[in-house]
Write a protein that binds this DNA or RNA. Structure first.
Length: 887
DNA sequence: GACCTGCTGCGGGGTG
């Protein structure tokens, strides 16, 4: 750290604690930053707040040292604390430390140790009689047992572990002494059910100690003030402390050597392997001075957007440079924790040249040796790109550097747009959740287990959270009824009578068994367990989806964890493998989320395109994209900001070869919205006249494929894309019931309808799905007013279809002029969207006619098309989406 | 000429 302004008088007035802390800084040749001082001052005034700072060390100390200063100031007023004159002495070994004072929440277990380390020395040097511990799921059982007896003075834990602690009967007594809670990486939690769980836990803690101070720490976010308000809850104002430690941010792009021949579509980016290899070799691998051989290498992270892409790229890099074997590693969420831990350790020791990874390394411990980051393919969002860039340059004065690797031509524009937006500070917002009743239901049982609750008091407490600030009496009563007897439909089943009312009015768990089962299912993360991939020796490599393994027979090879494996046998939920001798193998596909291009980035892309339309090409990316954009403009047009472009294209060739007609529309709203828009337009078309319409989409637009040209005029297009009747039509054309049925699985799990089973005896994903579907049907029939059903419909609309964004898109389009361009060839913008259609045709072995039939059926039954399409595809090619990696 | 996808995160009883 460098120098900073003098200590503010406000803080300096405060005292011994501050002197201790200054001494601690001084011993390191540091002086505190202004934002840290502002945070301490606000803390000492008894305030809560949110600290916004882009890097690690500074913000951790800003948040931690407030309580330390306070404790020193109090000089022993608290338990067996610091005595005047006895400060320098270490406390007697057996003396009991002070009771719980500070709680630090981290969304990631991996961050706990780092956090502990960063607070330990100032606390020790202040001579405080504090015990500092962590508690996460992987803590030893003896530690957990001890903490059940008595909590340390400072505890680092996760939201889930905190909730567990709140579920023990004597929780109140153990948390009453708490003075401050710090929530790290709050931007990661806000907008998720984990965040709501955190809000509820904080409300509980504040209920026991109204003077409790809450401090959040957040990365850059479009809605920081709202983030603070959500964290602090209703009517609980607080400060927003802006850190000024912004690091330099460098976003560059690998420009394809032959931009003219660069593909118009695609996502793997394999053709960029050579260029990336060259880039990696350029600086990475340079040894830092004075380090031993094999260590001290500065490496890079290569972020991909999917796990299978990471596997493919890892393989390709090794093939390109076999001398790098052992210096390149792979890291993603389906790899076993032990595998990932090893990679993280090697990276930290500077023994790796490059780690190919997914979002699994977005957060977590900062690795000093990482000096550069690659983003392979679309960054999807500005915050995401900035976050990833921030994984590099963890040294004072070092810049964060990210190198974009486009996988198709328009990603050149995306990287240029993302850089503009990032440097202008236009970062996405995160929307807080509104009243997820499944989380509330879980919380009610937790509170019953945690010493019991009185109904009116808990209701008021819950309403002080942002998430449940507008909870109605009906919703509250429904939630109470749900945990008391399972709602209307499940009264006959005692396991759903989870809480009972004592004579004194206190609600407690119905039995100790209920409480135990509840603790097993605390939390809001509901990922399916998957099948364990392991060697015969028992060594685990990771997990893979049941659907993938179902296609493999013993002897089949697949790529996993950067190895080519051969299936030996499947037993229960584990897949036994051995190293394969041959190299060619399929690559597994995981069914993950499909995150759309963010609104912010989409807007920035539109601006870049508008520049291009006006002949402005600034920067190497736009220069490289120039020929492509020229083609777009020459053949059709580049849509202006207030223009809705419709390309009506007659594609030559037989229908079965992708020929026919397609109309392509470009709202630039991300693929989820386009999926909705495509389905909506197709539905409205087929309603007006009998015809087969197939919709495809990508992040830029959607296409309607028909056998004959649609021949619609502007008025007809306006009708198709009218916001009027949006919800009704969407409910008709997408099988929202089916989507909701699937969404309900998560909700049923969080609300406690489905218990995941005991550790080590997980039910398979299918079993879980089956019982959640059963519940969905039973409730739909016998308890249609069950609010969890409504919630699953709402979650589908909001999370899966982005209904708000969809409506806004339709409204925006209403004000745009429609330009219809007739064409007989695919434009650069249209090609990738059309290719989505072609793909499904080529991969199917079914006859064209039966496919058409199925599509008609699909439109009629308005079914979700994905499972059908997969089955069709797989008949010829094996498992859906699995490709052979060719050597 | 062109393509072939889809992230992350946590927790625990032993009588089930």
């Amino acid at each position: 750290m460098s120098s900073s302004p003098e200590l503010s008088t406000e803080v300096a007035a405060a005292s011994t604690g501050l002197r201790e802390v200054s001494r601690w800084f001084g011993a390191r040749g540091w002086s505190p930053f202004a934002f840290q001082q502002r945070a301490w001052a606000a803390y000492l005034r008894g305030e809560s707040g949110l600290i916004h700072a882009p890097t690690g060390l500074g913000k951790t100390l800003a948040a931690w040292l407030g309580p330390v200063i306070e404790a020193v100031d109090e000089g022993g007023a608290f338990g067996a604390g610091v005595q005047a004159g006895a400060k320098r002495r270490r406390p007697a070994a057996r003396a009991a430390s002070e009771p719980l004072r500070v709680l630090w929440l981290t969304p990631l277990r991996a961050l706990a140790n780092d956090t502990l380390a960063s607070i330990e020395s100032p606390v020790r040097e202040s001579g405080l009689n504090w015990s500092i511990e962590k508690r996460t799921g992987d803590s030893s059982s003896s530690l957990k047992l001890r903490q059940k007896e008595r909590l340390p003075t400072a505890l680092v834990t996760t939201p889930e572990s905190l909730t567990l602690l709140l579920s023990y009967a004597d929780s109140r007594a153990r948390f009453e002494t708490l003075r401050a809670v710090v929530v790290d990486e709050w931007h990661e939690l806000m907008g998720t059910k984990r965040g709501v769980q955190t809000e509820l836990a904080l409300a509980r803690l504040r209920g026991w100690n109204p003077r409790l101070r809450t401090w959040g720490v957040s990365a850059t976010l479009g809605n920081l003030e709202q983030a603070r308000d959500v964290l602090l809850g209703v009517d609980n104002p607080g400060a927003l402390i802006q850190g000024e430690m912004a690091k330099e941010l460098r976003i560059t792009t690998v420009i394809p050597k032959d931009a003219e021949r660069f593909p118009w579509a695609g996502h793997l980016g394999i053709r960029a392997v050579d260029e990336v290899v060259e880039e990696i070799g350029r600086e990475a691998g340079t040894r830092r001075a004075g380090t031993s051989p094999g260590a001290g290498m500065s490496g890079c992270l290569l972020f991909t957007n999917t796990r299978s892409q990471a596997e493919i790229w890892f393989k390709r890099l090794i093939e390109a440079r076999d001398d790098w074997l052992g210096e390149i590693a792979i890291h993603h969420g389906s790899l076993d924790r032990s595998v990932r831990d090893r990679v993280e350790r090697l990276l930290d020791e500077g023994r790796l040249r490059c780690v190919v990874c997914t979002s699994s390394l977005d957060l977590g411990v900062d690795f000093q040796p990482v000096d550069r980051v690659f983003q392979l393919g679309s960054p999807k969002g500005i915050a995401r790109l900035v976050q990833r860039a921030g994984r590099s340059g963890h040294r004072p004065g070092a810049a964060s550097a990210v190198i974009g690797v486009p996988t198709h031509s328009f990603e050149l524009v995306e990287f240029a747009a993302a850089r503009d937006a990032a440097l202008a500070g236009r970062i996405e917002s995160r929307a807080p959740l509104d009243r997820p009743l499944d989380v509330l239901a879980q919380h009610l049982v937790t509170c019953a287990c945690g010493g019991g609750f009185e109904e009116p008091a808990l209701r008021d407490e819950v309403r002080r959270t942002h998430a449940f600030g507008s909870l109605t009496d009906e919703q509250w009563s429904w939630a109470m009824d749900f945990v008391r007897r399972g709602g209307r439909a499940l009264t006959a089943y005692p396991e759903y009578s989870r809480i009972v009312r004592q004579d004194d009015g206190l609600w407690i768990p119905a039995s100790e068994r209920i409480a135990r089962m509840h603790r097993l299912s605390i939390g809001t993360i509901t990922a399916e367990p998957g099948m364990t991939v392991q060697y015969a020796s028992g060594r685990r490599l990771g997990t893979i989806e049941e659907g993938f393994i179902a296609w493999l027979t013993p002897g089949a090879r697949f790529v996993f964890a950067g190895k080519v494996l051969e299936l030996v046998r499947v037993r229960g939920m584990s897949v036994v493998v051995r190293q394969a001798k041959r190299r060619s193998a399929t690559v597994p596909r995981w069914n993950g989320g499909r995150f759309p291009l963010s609104s912010q980035l989409a807007r920035a892309v539109r601006e870049k395109l508008d520049d291009a339309r006006r002949g402005v090409f600034v920067g190497p990316e736009m220069q490289a994209a120039r020929p492509l954009l020229r083609v777009q403009q020459a053949w059709s047009r580049i849509p202006a900001p207030e223009e809705l472009l419709v390309e009506q294209i007659d594609v030559p060739g037989p229908e079965a070869g992708g020929g026919g007609s397609c109309a392509v529309i470009y709202p630039f709203e991300g693929r989820l919205v386009h999926e909705g828009l495509g389905a909506l337009a197709a539905y409205r078309l087929s309603r007006s006249r009998p015809m087969t319409v197939v919709a495809t989409c990508n992040d830029y637009g959607f296409a309607l494929h028909t056998a004959k040209p649609l021949g619609l005029d502007e008025r007809a297009w306006r009708g198709l894309l009218s916001p009027e009747g949006l919800l009704d039509d969407l409910l008709h054309c997408l099988n929202t019931t089916e989507l909701a049925r699937r969404q309900f699985r998560t909700i049923a799990r969080v609300a406690g309808l489905i218990v995941p089973g005991f550790p080590g005896q997980r039910k398979g994903a299918r079993q879980l799905q089956a019982s959640s579907e059963m519940f969905f049907d039973v409730l739909s029939e016998f308890d249609p007013a069950n609010l969890l059903l409504e919630q699953s419909r709402r979650e589908v609309l909001e999370a899966q279809l982005e209904i708000g964004r969809l409506r806004a898109a339709l409204e925006r389009m209403e004000g745009q002029g429609v330009t219809i361009v007739g064409l007989d060839r695919l434009t650069p913008l249209a090609f990738p969207i059309w290719a989505e259609h072609l793909r499904s045709i080529q991969l199917s072995s079914e006859k064209w006619s039966s496919m058409v039939e199925r599509m008609v059926m699909k439109l009629e039954s308005a079914a979700d098309d994905r499972p059908a399409a997969r089955q069709g595809r797989s008949k010829r090619k094996g498992p859906a989406g699995y490709r052979n990696v060719r050597d």
